[in-house]
Amino acid sequence: MIKFFLMNLLLSFIWVALTGSMYYSNFIFGYLLGFGVLWVMNRDETDQRYFYRVPKIISFFFFFLFEMIKANIQVAYDVITPKYFFKPGIIRYPINAQTDFEINILSTFISLTPGTLIIDISDDRKAIYIHVMYLKDEEQFIRSLKTGVERKLLEILR
């Protein structure tokens, strides 16, 4: 998988050098063009993980960006209005992540969203304790994390 990523970066740099324009958009276009070339050339190989993970990573990036913008607007609205709408709470969130790396990445992405803060990880590494600024329904919050951030992140990592 690393081999394909490095070849894709090399193809991107070659594209930028051949076109002569050093812009991010040109580099991204070269990356996508190189991704397509590598995918066509390696369709018969057994290791296809790279070609499935890159679209999932891009999808996760836009999903997380949307969630972060939504949470920032909610916090900003609460700050600029005279009435406070937050209902803080601490929940025990059962996790499906198994390795330390998966737990660390998951807790980092949960903490990056405004309004949430990781307090602790249980000793058996089966749950994370989260302080939530806007906790209206605990079950709905857990369901949204399970089907959103955790599911998409574990699809990328596994």
Rank of each mutant, 00 (worst) to 15 (best):
I156T: 06
I69K: 07
I103L: 07
Q98T: 13
I69P: 04
L153W: 03
E138C: 05
I58K: 03
L117Q: 07
I80L: 10
E45L: 13
T147N: 08
A127N: 14
F66S: 09
Q48K: 05
I103K: 12
G148Y: 02
I105M: 14
V132Q: 04
Y77H: 11
D120C: 08
E45G: 14
Q48I: 02
M1F: 13
S144D: 09
G89I: 04
P55Y: 10
I58E: 01
L157V: 14
E150I: 00
E45K: 13
V16P: 01
I28L: 15
Y134N: 01
L11R: 02
I142W: 03
Y77I: 08
Y23S: 14
Q48G: 00
F141T: 03
M41F: 15
E67N: 09
L145Y: 06
I73M: 13
V79Y: 10
T113K: 13
N42Q: 07
D78F: 03
I128E: 06
G30F: 05
H131F: 04
S107F: 09
K126Y: 05
E67S: 07
M133I: 12
A76L: 06
F86R: 03
L145G: 00
D100V: 04
N26I: 15
V54T: 08
D44R: 12
F141E: 05
E155H: 09
P82V: 02
F61A: 06
W15G: 03
T81V: 12
D120I: 04
I58L: 12
D44E: 11
V149T: 12
P94Q: 08
E150C: 03
F62C: 11
L157N: 13
T116K: 04
A17M: 15
I105K: 04
R49L: 10
K126D: 05
G115M: 03
P94I: 02
E67L: 14
D123E: 08
S111T: 07
F64D: 01
Y31C: 09
F85R: 12
W39K: 14
Y93Q: 05
Y134R: 01
T116R: 02
F4C: 04
L65K: 09
T19R: 14
P94N: 11
I57T: 11
M1L: 12
L6P: 10
D124Q: 01
I57G: 06
T147E: 10
I90W: 09
I105F: 10
L65V: 13
L32C: 14
F35P: 01
F35Q: 00
I156W: 15
N42T: 07
V79G: 10
W15C: 13
V149S: 05
A17W: 13
G89C: 06
D47I: 11
H131W: 02
F63T: 01
L153D: 01
I119H: 07
K152Q: 07
M133S: 03
R151A: 13
L10C: 11
F51K: 07
F85M: 08
L153G: 02
S144W: 01
F4E: 08
L10K: 12
V54E: 09
I95C: 04
M41V: 14
R43F: 09
Y23A: 13
K87N: 15
E150H: 03
N26M: 12
T99C: 06
D137C: 06
I142K: 02
V40Q: 14
E67K: 11
G34I: 05
T19F: 08
I156H: 15
K146R: 15
G20T: 06
L117H: 00
Y31N: 08
K152T: 07
H131C: 06
F61E: 07
A76Q: 00
F51Q: 05
I142C: 01
M133W: 04
K70M: 02
